[in-house]
Amino acid sequence: MTGKIESRLAELGVTLTEAPAPAANYVPYVQSGNLVFISGQISQGPDGLITGKLGADVSLDDGAAAARSCAISLLAQLKAACGGDLDRMTRVVKLTGFVNSTPDFTDQPKVINGASDFLVEALGDAGRHSRSAVSAGALPFNVAVEIEGIFEIA
């Protein structure tokens, strides 16, 4: 049976895939008490990785879409951490977003809004969170965005 959160995602046209496997020597998430710390999720879509540099070859809108894809991957990891029951999530606590950008690009918050806006749209008030949005001169595999998250679960 599909839970409340996954039903809402379906209304938004989002189906969670299997949680992406780690690309190096780390675990995808760690639970400590009622908090789940999810490792950085990189921007990817149905056609593969979303790559490029904001301020050079990636538009602000495409960057926000890349951030949204990271938020979807965060929820897939959270679902795995919750044993398949995404409704155990009680709130998004914090996101840290990294934007592959040129030195003169200053709209990192607008890029990471792609993730923040999606989580609020999908989760309502439980999706509201604290956040950092920072520039990176390069990201793994030349992805446009990477986002890590902290979630509270019941």
Rank of each mutant, 00 (worst) to 15 (best):
K53H: 05
T17C: 13
V120M: 06
S59C: 07
V30S: 14
S130H: 12
G33P: 15
A80K: 08
L60I: 12
S7N: 09
V36L: 02
E152L: 03
R131Q: 02
Q31V: 03
T106M: 06
L78A: 05
A126F: 15
D47G: 02
E148M: 05
S132K: 15
P20I: 08
L123H: 11
V111D: 03
D57W: 10
A56C: 06
F105W: 15
D104K: 00
A67L: 00
R68D: 01
G52F: 09
S7I: 02
S135E: 07
T102R: 11
A10I: 08
F141M: 03
P20E: 04
E18G: 10
R68A: 07
T15E: 12
D87T: 11
R8D: 05
G33L: 04
T106P: 15
A65G: 04
T106Y: 10
A19D: 03
A154F: 12
C70K: 00
A81D: 07
A81M: 03
L74V: 10
V36N: 01
L12S: 15
C70G: 10
R131N: 04
F141Y: 14
L9T: 07
L16K: 00
G124R: 06
H129V: 00
L74E: 09
T96E: 09
R128H: 12
S101T: 12
Q44K: 12
D85L: 07
I38Q: 02
A65T: 03
F105S: 10
F118L: 03
L60E: 07
L95W: 12
L139R: 07
V99G: 06
V145E: 03
F118K: 01
T90C: 02
A19E: 04
L78W: 05
A10K: 15
T96N: 13
F98G: 04
T106G: 12
T51Q: 09
F151Q: 00
T90E: 00
Q108S: 02
V30P: 08
V111K: 00
V58L: 06
F98C: 06
L74A: 06
E148V: 00
G55Y: 01
G124S: 10
T2G: 11
V99E: 00
V120F: 15
D117R: 05
E146Y: 08
I5H: 13
E121D: 11
S43H: 04
L78D: 02
A133D: 09
Y26L: 14
K53S: 11
R88G: 15
A136N: 10
Q41L: 02
P20H: 15
V92Y: 14
T15N: 14
A21H: 13
L12K: 12
P140F: 03
E121K: 13
D47Q: 13
N25E: 14
D57K: 08
N25L: 14
H129R: 06
I153V: 14
A67G: 03
V93Q: 14
Y26T: 03
I150R: 12
G55M: 09
E11T: 10
V27C: 11
I5D: 11
T106N: 12
G45F: 03
T15V: 14
H129Y: 09
V143D: 10
S43I: 01
G127C: 05
T102A: 02
A136R: 14
R68G: 10
A24P: 15
M1I: 13
S7V: 05
E18N: 03
A56I: 07
V120L: 08
T102I: 06
F37R: 10
G55I: 08
I42S: 13
S73G: 05
G149N: 04
M89F: 08
T90W: 13
A81L: 05
G52K: 08
N142R: 05
